[in-house]
Design a protein around this nucleic acid. Structure first.
Length: 739
DNA sequence: ACGGTTGCTACG
DNA sequence: TCGTAGCAA
């Protein structure tokens, strides 16, 4: 899995910066009274007070460790302050930490190429900055060296007892007889010290750093002296470092591969690998891994610092460990009964409403299943539906979070994601092979919370069908009693920047490919089109908050407003989904669509008449016509004009065909409706309270009954689409669906 | 070559 | 632990 790359230069200056117990620092900044106290962040988990995921250095002194339970931590350190990870939508919410990480990145990116390696780590390529410093104002000639820099640890530097450590560092930095590489590292020391001070000043966070000639060594070094210190690996001390370094400490070797090296090869230190010829390692571990191992034994790692300030994907997930698995009837009833009593003892309106929704769903499903069972076909439908209901509830929560994050990304970074993926884990007790994998499924990502929810659930169904079908039998009925879901997650990937002006957009519509597009992430070009119609300055990408210094993004916020002054919000949604659907596999590029989308960007909302009569082919031919016209106009034609004059009926036929193929042959009617069909269904789901079996209703506490009744009122506005969702669910589990 | 899917790894 | 991420096969 690791892969070797040749070292581009052996005198790069690479830094790895790692925040100290990051989540703790974020919480301490929020609650300054916690500063200096032994503190730990726990992920809430009714069980034993949750598990610790970050521990302050004060707490570590008392023996508090990560992966202790809250209770355990209290035992070894009764005064430890436990702070919970925030919870939203019933799950851990890490957005506060993510945002704090972004603050840090935007500071660290100031002096060179910066790669966001995780929520709290970055790599920096400071080669250019160091070379520049060496040319202009080399540390050898400096009179004073920054205090923070003097506190650096320099591996291999002789610190005889009694000698002044700082003085030794000062001497090392000032050395005139050093080779070029060491001089560059000396510059790196100063630059990183400055950056770390900037981070502290602007964010109140401390961090540690490693400075070396490549990423691997920098990463190794950053962890050697924590917290709030930096460590340098001069070229000359690499061998000594690796010779004694336990092999499992090396990144990538902390798992199975490292175990195998110890067990199968008898290697216990990284230097121990030196005894094996490259071919031997390749034989045993494959070409790539073998070469990689051979290289790291010698301190060689050619990996480049990527120049990426933003994550490549977003995900939202939740696990349902053991007894809390989403499973069949009895547990569901227990769950619901518990919730009912919770509701009765809890006056919080939100909770009340959300569980009322669950219950409403359940009743609807129950109605359905009674009906199905009444037809004498699949009594199992009910069971499935109840699991599905739980799955749907959680998927809705997860998708809501994901959608929110996608909107922020679009808003702040002008990026759109193209792929939605669903992962789940399931067990089947009936099978000996109960750990069989629930397959991941993905599909094109459509923006809008409801759409993501719908698509995610369809993906789940596709996966479930495979899971059950494969290892179960022909009928769900005989096999659905012993299975459950132990984790669910949704993620969005293939995130690419959107162009920032009409020119770039125009370029799309001229049939430029997405790959062309994605290649620009590193900021160059796109400028072939810059002359089209906008002032040159606006023709670039940006990651707005986190942009590289050179890139700026004038007036981005106003672009939509300026160009789309009079599309109603809903219209824009319709329009964008239509476009996206029609163009996904067809005649124009899709990437424009989410731009228009969206409750993400506040927009004017004046009304405009729409022409819903045009069908797809009309749209297509007219589009071509206009495209030709626009081309003649050399870009002065606003693409938006094109849309405005024309708003085709968003019949989803094109998409649904393709889509259903993607998710594994779901019946077209279940995954994508035309507008008319959908309206029809909504109508059908305007349940009358009288339709509910009284016995079902009576099961519920009075309060809940009232709540449900309110929900059932036809034409009353439902706060979300949960009820409609349950229609989908019933569809899947309904016997008629299967035939 | 490319995209969907899986497995491994890391970390707060 | 759990919730995220990234990468390589």
């Amino acid at each position: 899995m690791p892969v070797a790359k040749p070292e581009s230069s052996d005198s790069r200056v690479i830094a790895h910066v790692d925040m100290d117990c990051f989540y703790v620092q974020v919480e301490q900044r929020k609650q300054p009274q916690l500063r200096g106290l032994p503190t730990a962040v726990v992920q809430y988990n009714e069980w034993k007070g949750g598990a610790l995921i970050a521990v302050s250095y004060e707490a570590r002194k008392f023996g508090v460790k990560r992966s202790m339970r809250g209770e355990e931590a209290k035992e070894v350190c009764p005064q430890v302050q436990l702070v919970q990870v925030p919870v939203a939508r019933g799950k851990a919410d890490l957005s506060g930490y993510r945002n704090a990480g972004s603050e840090v990145v935007s500071i660290l990116a100031r002096r060179g190429r910066c790669e966001r390696a995780s929520i709290d780590e970055v790599y920096l390529d400071l080669t250019d900055a160091a070379e520049m410093m060496l040319a202009d104002n080399p540390p050898q000639g400096m009179e004073t060296i920054d205090e923070e820099a003097l506190k650096s640890h320099i591996l291999g530097l002789n610190n005889e007892d009694g000698s002044d450590v700082k003085e030794n560092v000062r001497k090392w930095i000032h050395r005139h007889n050093a080779d070029h590489r060491d001089k560059l590292l000396a510059c790196g020391i100063l630059i990183v010290a400055e950056l770390r001070m900037q981070v502290l000043k602007e964010t109140e966070f401390t961090c540690s750093a490693g400075i070396a000639h490549n990423k691997m060594l920098a990463k190794l070094a950053s962890g050697m002296n924590k917290p709030a210190q930096q460590t340098v690996v001069p070229f000359s001390s690499v061998k000594g470092l690796l010779d004694t370094l336990p092999i499992r400490k090396m990144k990538q070797l902390g798992g199975k591969l490292g175990i195998s090296l110890q067990m199968d090869m008898g290697v216990n230190t990284v230097g121990g690998l030196l005894q094996f010829p490259e071919e031997k390692l390749q034989e045993r571990y494959g070409i790539n891994t073998g070469t990689w191992l051979w290289n790291i034994a010698r301190g060689i790692s050619g990996e480049e610092v990527e120049g990426r300030l933003l994550p490549k994907s977003h995900g939202s997930g939740k696990t349902f460990p053991g007894p809390r698995a989403l499973k069949t009837v009895p547990a569901v009833r227990v769950f619901l009964n518990k919730k009912c009593s919770m509701i009765l003892s809890c006056h919080e309106v939100n909770v009340l409403i959300s569980f009322a929704i669950i219950l409403a769903c359940r009743i609807l499903c129950k109605l359905k299943s009674i009906f199905w069972v009444g037809n004498g076909k699949f009594s199992a439908a009910k069971t499935g539906a109840e699991i599905g209901e739980m799955v749907q509830h959680w998927l809705n929560q997860l998708c809501e979070e994901l959608s929110e994050r996608l909107c922020s990304d679009l808003d702040q970074n002008k990026r759109i994601a193209h792929t939605l993926t669903l992962h789940a884990r399931a067990y089947k007790s009936s099978d000996s092979d109960s750990q069989k994998k629930f397959p991941s499924k993905s599909c094109p990502l459509r923006y809008g919370t409801a759409k993501i929810q719908e698509d995610a659930f369809n993906l789940f169904q596709a996966g479930l069908r495979e899971y059950i079908g494969f290892y179960g039998g022909k009928t769900q009925g005989s096999h659905c009693s012993g299975w459950g879901i132990t984790s669910l997650s949704v993620s969005a990937s293939k995130i690419v920047p959107i162009p920032s002006g009409t020119c770039s957009i125009a370029k799309y519509f001229q049939g430029q490919s997405t790959s062309h597009f994605s290649s620009m992430q590193s900021s160059d070009n796109l400028n072939t089109e810059a002359t089209l119609s906008l002032p040159s300055g606006s023709e670039c990408y940006s990651e707005v908050n986190l942009s590289e210094p050179k890139i700026d993004f004038p007036k981005e916020e106003s672009w939509i407003k300026d160009t789309v002054p009079d599309l109603d919000l809903q219209e824009q949604k319709d329009l964008s989904s239509t476009l996206s659907e029609k163009t996904q596999y067809g005649f124009i590029q899709e990437d424009i669509s989410p731009l228009l989308l969206s409750g993400c960007l506040e927009q004017n909302r004046s009304k405009q008449q729409r022409d819903l009569t045009k069908d797809e082919s009309q749209f297509k031919s007219e589009y071509k016509e206009r495209k030709g016209k626009r081309l003649k106009d050399k870009g002065t034609y606003s693409i938006i004009e094109l849309f405005k004059s024309y708003n085709p009926n968003p019949s989803g036929s094109f998409l649904s065909h393709e889509y259903n193929r993607t998710v594994g042959g779901t019946d077209a009617s279940s995954s994508s409706y035309s507008r008319d069909e959908e309206e029809g269904r909504r109508e059908a789901w305007g349940y009358n309270i009288d339709e509910i079996d009284p016995s079902v209703m009576e099961e519920l506490p009075m309060e809940i009954q009232d709540e449900i009744k309110a929900w059932m009122q036809p034409h009353k506005r439902r706060p979300n689409n949960m009820v409609k969702r349950s229609c989908t669910i019933s569809h899947y589990f309904s016997p008629s669906k299967k035939s």
